[in-house]
Write a protein that binds this DNA or RNA. Structure first.
Lengths: 288, 288
DNA sequence: CGCGGAATGAAACAAATGATTCATCTGTTG
DNA sequence: CAACAGATGAATCATTTGTTTCATTCCGCG
């Protein structure tokens, strides 16, 4: 008995674009909450995914399974084969839940830790490494992140520009957005950061870059995100938050991981270059 | 909502000797196959344990649970929450064997988690709460972060501006930096993010704000940082990184914590305001 | 031997599950 | 606008689930 969980996920992702909206909603929930599929009944899954039970049945048929149980089995198998060891670190953190704002904050801390753990997960490590390799081989690295995603995008660009001079941060100021991408071609790569609600401008830019055959690295919330549509490398980051706005901590962590990898690939000199650059850029405070 | 899987196992083990033979068989199976409890139906468990369904029901009652579902829940919860922790542990093992980029990345992950834990530590929680209160009571909130610190500063400003309109992000573009602070006074607060090497411009701005009696919230690396000199609230974030550049993950986490607190203080309407704002700001992609 | 009480198993039940059917809705095409 | 096909949802069905009830078995003691 071989574990076909990855195949099932791939099936879900590959079929995604051919599915109807309701089926997509169900498929997306499955990709994003794989544990719940193994743990709960079909009706419960349907309820949590905000979908009718019949939709789940239709999805199983649409994917080519004979019955729901066949679709569910890989998810269940995956949960079975995990390490029997139990570590309660996360729950310990959660357990400290106090009252009022302290409770919210400790909740937030637990979620941020989980965000980092998932964003820098084992699954993502090789993807990030390949993505870094792609960027390393690129003539030019375009960086795109609008609205909230500007923060991680900027951070990447700033750190990158300290040791390489072939990056360009796309911004919307002065309406020159489209012009900035004009020269992009297959030798270039585009690092795009995008989260729901996806900005139309971002999606348009990604499609433009894809048509120009540029390599796309997408940092986003799901493999079926529109920003990941034509991406060569999809880095999925968890972004849960107890607050109204999703967290960018995971995305920032990914950016810093990419920078770290790129510095390594750039060679040992890069570190010295960087140190010099930062010192040159600022007068160190007299305090230090 | 606390998860008591260890307690449940202990309960099973402790009660074991007092149970009747059939109940023991069931209890033993549960202890030895905890995953199956969370994954399968009661009847399936009974079949696998070679026991009648009624025996399982009797066991749940014998252990003091009201219904089977109550006994099953801890087992299920465990399968849900264990995955990230397990991933980290597995990676630690792998780290010793592998070389190169994977080792660096797992290093980075461990450090980022530590950064979050320290930045959102119990010591910092009350400070952040007070800082949020100060900002909440301010007429105007100035936000300052230059170079790398621009990322967390921008993130704060962007999220804040979604539900409040009294913030100003200080930037250096077009040489109008000094002008932007001109009107600051004792009713205002300045949220400043700064890390070594401290930018002189940042320190100057903080001193200017301090002379104007503005309340200063400093997010920085040390209580003796020049940026914290005149600060009313000092939020120390850890920023370690295996790379050349220090991490901003902790600072981003603090920013998001402050936003969370400020939304709470702003009242329940804020959430709706935000949702509307985001929708207005962007056309949702046709994909969704 | 047989009686009593507990342990066990078989049967029965309502509630739920997964699947199917059919009616309605939606959006497209001519 | 009409007409059609596909997508969706409501209703329904047989099956499975967790639980309870009741009959049977087991075993120690007189």
């Amino acid at each position: 008995m071989k574990s076909q969980y990855p195949d099932t996920i791939r099936l879900l992702v590959d079929a995604y674009s051919r599915l109807t909206p309701e089926l997509q909603k169900a498929a997306r929930f499955m990709v994003e909450h794989p544990e719940e599929i193994g743990l709960n009944s079909m009706r419960t899954v349907a309820r949590d995914a905000d979908v009718k039970p019949a939709t789940i049945t239709r999805l199983t048929k649409a994917l080519g399974f004979r019955e729901y149980e066949a679709l569910r089995e890989p998810f269940r198998q995956r949960l079975r084969t995990r390490s029997p060891e139990f570590a309660a670190k996360l729950q310990d953190v959660q357990r400290r839940g106090k009252t009022g704002s302290r409770s919210i904050l400790s909740d937030l801390r637990a979620q941020e830790i989980a965000n980092i753990e998932h964003s820098l997960s084992d699954d993502n490590l090789p993807i990030m490494d390949e993505a870094a390799q792609t960027m390393h081989e690129s003539r030019r690295v375009y960086v795109l992140g609008l609205r909230g995603a500007h923060a991680p995008a900027f951070l990447f660009h700033y750190a990158y520009q300290l040791f390489q001079d072939n990056s360009q941060l796309l911004d919307t100021s002065a309406g020159i957005f489209a012009d900035q991408l004009r020269g992009i071609n297959s030798e270039d790569s585009l690092l795009v950061v995008s989260f729901p609600p996806y900005t139309q401008l971002t999606i348009d830019a990604v499609e433009y870059a894809a048509e120009a055959s540029a390599r796309i690295i997408a940092v986003t919330d799901s493999v079926v995100s529109p920003a990941a549509n034509a991406a060569a490398h999809i880095i999925v980051t968890r972004n849960q938050s107890p607050s109204f706005y999703h967290s960018f901590t995971g995305a920032v962590g990914v950016m810093q991981a990419l920078i770290t990898l790129l510095v390594t690939k750039a060679g040992g000199d890069a570190v010295k270059i960087v140190e010099e650059a930062e010192k040159r850029l600022s007068r160190i405070s007299a305090y230090w």
